[in-house]
Amino acid sequence: MPREAEPSLNEKQFVLQALHDSVRLDGRELEQYRPLELTFGDQYGVADVTLGKTRVLAKASAELTVPYADRPLDGIFNIATELSPMTSPAFEVNRPTETEVLISRLLEKTVRRSGALDTESLCLVAGQKCWSIRVDVHVLSHDGNLIDAACFAVVAALRHFRKPDTSMEGGVLTVYTPAEREPVPLSWLHSPFCVTWSFFGEEGDVAVLDATWMEEQVRSGSCTISLNKHGEICQIAKLGGVPVEAVSLLQCTNVALVKAKDMSSKLDRWLAEDARRRDKGGLLAELSAENDRVPDM
């Protein structure tokens, strides 16, 4: 729906001019991220990420199903991103926009294709039964840099998620309910993060991290680098836009590694805090099904 409000000429010219003087509207440095916050839900697998005014919610869920015929030893793993009018009244339900397709593809390449989740471990009975893991990404508020926030939310949700425990005895598969046996975490190999650079100006000489919505409207090019804390790059996407010097791009990758390490340590810390918090509930939390969990907001 071409109803998105375009910024005025005054705003566009001002933002560009300010960036050429290395000044950002919110007073950040060019390579500084907005404050990143993460909250886990009461259920396992719900991650709520806030990056300044951008807010993304990811939910991981699991279901038993039949594996694909050509991959009988692998489970199924899908990431679904659908932008709703909550993101902005310009988005419509069931009508994918360019933004939505781009986010889907980048998350697909970053998390799925890089093998972050071990799909072989999802197989229960070869060719007959396997787990289908699905992550739904909901963008609650859009103020720029949806990709980095969404990727962080997806990784956090998957690492937080617990699937029901199973056991195989003499060809009989038993799936335990959460009341019978505590659910188990997924088999996770590495945590990839996305770092998006935005380029401004006709030469693409001003490079900025974590652009706000206004900055995204004025940028002339962007590049998303996905990597984990060990410096292993999953993908680099620079889809058109203004040409950028190769040397600058390499420097961008170096800075991206610093940011990825930072994001990784933050995620580890939050996961540890959440585990400590749940442990406080102790055994009582497991035994009673009608336990009222106090929602934390």
Binding site: Q43, V46, S61, E63, T65, M86, T177, A289
Partner: peptide
């Protein structure tokens, strides 16, 4: 325009939920 996003719903610990077509 009112958009309602469900974030959390209480789990029934006695059954395994089917979630794909929730």
């Amino acid at each position: 325009q009112i958009v309602l996003q469900v974030e959390d719903s209480p789990e029934n610990d006695y059954v395994n939920t089917k979630l794909v077509q929730a």
